[in-house]
């Protein structure tokens, strides 16, 4: 069980940045929302600890792909730190997406050669 979990996490590590950027494409969100969104979208397959999200968010911000600001949430009377995609981040998402696509296709060609031929 523990092993399986680690595998999932590993897979996640390489793609976390892309997933965050993709999530933010819908609009600004705070950390908890981003985490929940990824978890929900994958039907809880990617069960990550929210904690690992924050260093990644800070890293992306440092690279200038996202920006952050403390804002009051529309539905309740509380401040959250909202992250927004920048123009640079949008471009980066395109790059990462195509890279990811290339990689999965390459992996697929190795794994299921017959499917490719047909």
């Amino acid at each position: 069980m523990a092993n399986e979990k680690r595998q999932r996490a590993n897979l996640l590590l390489g793609t976390l940045d892309m997933l965050i950027l993709r999530t933010l494409l819908y609009g600004p969100a705070h950390g908890h929302q981003i985490g929940k969104h990824i978890q929900r979208s994958t039907d809880d397959f990617l069960q990550m600890q929210h904690g690992s999200l924050y260093p990644a968010l800070h890293r992306l911000e440092r690279k200038g792909w996202i920006v952050s600001r403390w804002e009051t949430a529309p539905d309740r009377n509380r401040e959250f730190k909202y992250y927004r995609l920048t123009e640079k981040g949008r471009k980066q998402l395109v790059v990462e997406e195509s890279q990811w696509k290339q990689m999965t296709e390459a992996v697929a060609r190795v794994m299921w050669p017959a499917a490719e031929e047909s």
Partner: peptide, 19 residues
């Protein structure tokens, strides 16, 4: 708490992210 994970570790990782 379990869902969030080890806060010390998170902080360390964040520091690393800040260089």
């Amino acid at each position: 708490r379990q869902a969030l994970g080890n806060t010390t570790l998170i902080r360390e990782h964040a520091h690393e992210a800040w260089g």
